[in-house]
Computed example of a mutant assay.
Amino acid sequence: MKKVKVGIVGLGRLGKQHAENLAFRIPHCELTAVCSVIEDEVKEVQERWNIPYTYTTYEDMLQNKELNAIFIASPSGFHCKQIQQALAAGFHVFSEKPLGLYLEEAVEVQEAVEAHSDKVFMLGFMRRYDKSYMAAKEKIDRGDIGKPIFIRCYGLDPAVKMDSFLKFAGSNYSGGLFLDMAIHDLDLARWYLGTEGKEVWAIGGGYERKEFDELKDAETGAAMVRFENNASGVFLAGRNCAHGYHIETEIIGTKGSIRIGTVPERNQIVLFNENGAIQECVDGFLERFEQAYRSEAEEFINCILEGRKPAVTVRDGVESTRLAYSCKESFEKGELIQNRTNSLTV
Rank of each mutant, 00 (worst) to 15 (best):
67 L>C: 05
322 R>L: 15
283 D>C: 02
175 G>N: 00
167 K>A: 14
122 M>Q: 15
27 P>L: 11
46 Q>W: 02
75 P>N: 12
73 A>D: 04
175 G>Q: 01
121 F>I: 08
273 N>M: 03
209 R>E: 15
135 A>E: 13
161 K>F: 14
159 A>L: 15
249 T>G: 02
255 K>G: 11
333 K>F: 04
38 I>A: 08
291 Q>V: 08
32 T>W: 15
158 P>K: 05
160 V>D: 05
15 G>C: 10
330 S>P: 03
191 W>D: 08
22 L>W: 01
101 L>W: 09
1 M>S: 15
194 G>Y: 12
265 E>N: 09
70 I>S: 03
208 E>S: 11
132 S>I: 06
259 R>M: 13
57 T>I: 15
146 G>A: 05
38 I>C: 02
258 I>S: 04
143 G>F: 06
274 E>F: 09
22 L>S: 04
73 A>E: 05
256 G>E: 03
193 L>K: 10
182 A>Q: 06
18 H>F: 15
76 S>R: 08
310 P>T: 10
35 C>M: 02
235 F>N: 03
75 P>T: 10
271 L>K: 12
30 E>K: 04
109 V>Q: 01
225 V>H: 00
128 R>N: 07
334 G>V: 08
290 E>C: 08
9 V>R: 06
322 R>C: 06
29 C>M: 06
332 E>F: 04
85 Q>N: 11
33 A>P: 07
67 L>A: 04
66 E>W: 06
61 M>Y: 06
40 D>P: 04
2 K>N: 14
306 E>M: 13
284 G>C: 06
126 M>D: 01
288 R>V: 04
256 G>N: 07
295 S>H: 13
67 L>D: 00
182 A>T: 09
181 M>V: 15
155 G>K: 09
180 D>V: 02
129 Y>R: 07
